[in-house]
Amino acid sequence: MAPRTPSPRKSVALLTGLAAAGALALTGTTPAVAQPGSAAAGATTVTPAGHGFAATLSGKATLKSGSVTVTCSVSTSSGTVPAAPANHNPAGPVVSALTPPTFSSCTTSMPGVSATVTTSGSWTVSMQYGSPIVASFTVPTGGLVVKTSGLASCTVTAAPNGPADTSGTWTNGAPSKLAFTGASVPIKVVGGFGCPTSATSSSFTATYVVTDTTDPAQQITVSG
């Protein structure tokens, strides 16, 4: 990663989430866990097979790119657990397609600067059973764009050169949760004064609750 030019401690922030639902373009650290698809990957099963699910932001999501931080309070995405037998992988993750996560009610910490977040393309989430359970979003090329306006007009594009993965952790529960803490994704920043144009990665922090939309009495669960 290219070193950052020191900048004033002002921040503009977003959210993915998920995704990206945005979500997401991200610098930070991710938990030291085995990545899905690695040689050490074991079996993974996601249930209920064929059920739809919704991921809804709990609290706020932040996307930090250099001195710029954007905070969003609304973010959602949805998808479907693969039908059997594709909901089980004997030696790796189970992958589900997602709708591009949406992000709204976004603010910045810089006076006079507003932000909008748009997402597009084919997003996916992969679940790898383990300790912890790893959940990785794949952001498609240019699949998340943050634009600021006002005193600083910047465009931050996530995954500018190809699809990029950002890893978090999954916790089974009622409802289950998907959390990202400083998850990193490559970015490209263009703009004038106040824009972190030297930043090459951004960090994403958010927690989503995941509910079963086919049968709300059941829970989306990841096991071995």
Rank of each mutant, 00 (worst) to 15 (best):
C72M: 07
G42C: 04
S65P: 08
T80L: 02
S75N: 12
A41G: 01
N87V: 13
V74Q: 07
T44L: 07
G42F: 00
S73V: 07
A39G: 10
A43K: 09
V68G: 11
P82Y: 13
C72Q: 15
P90F: 04
V46A: 01
A86D: 07
N87P: 03
K64D: 06
P85K: 01
A41R: 01
L57M: 03
T71N: 13
P82F: 10
T76S: 15
T45N: 09
S75Q: 14
V74L: 06
S65L: 14
S58V: 09
A84R: 06
F53Q: 08
T47C: 03
P90Y: 05
A39K: 12
A83Q: 08
V70N: 09
L57S: 01
T71H: 13
G59P: 00
A54R: 03
S73N: 06
V68D: 14
S75M: 12
A84F: 05
H88M: 07
P85Q: 02
G42K: 02
G59K: 03
S77V: 07
S65T: 14
N87F: 10
T62Q: 06
T56F: 12
G52S: 14
G79Q: 13
A83I: 12
L63A: 12
V74S: 07
G52V: 07
A61I: 12
T62A: 04
A40W: 10
G79A: 15
G79Y: 06
G52L: 09
N87S: 07
V70G: 10
V81S: 00
T69N: 08
V81P: 00
G50T: 08
F53N: 10
P85N: 03
G59A: 10
H51R: 05
A54K: 05
T56L: 15
A49L: 11
T44P: 01
S67R: 08
A86Y: 06
L57I: 03
P85C: 01
T45F: 12
C72Y: 14
A39Q: 10
V74G: 02
N87G: 06
T44D: 01
L57Y: 00
S73Y: 08
S77T: 13
T76I: 12
G79E: 12
G79I: 13
T56N: 06
T62L: 04
G42N: 04
F53D: 09
G59S: 06
L63K: 12
V70K: 15
K60G: 09
A83G: 11
L63Y: 13
T80Y: 00
N89I: 02
V81D: 00
A41I: 01
A54S: 09
S58H: 04
S73D: 13
K60S: 14
A84E: 04
T76M: 08
P48L: 02
A55V: 13
A55H: 05
A54E: 05
H88C: 05
T44M: 05
T45H: 07
A39E: 11
V46G: 00
G59W: 03
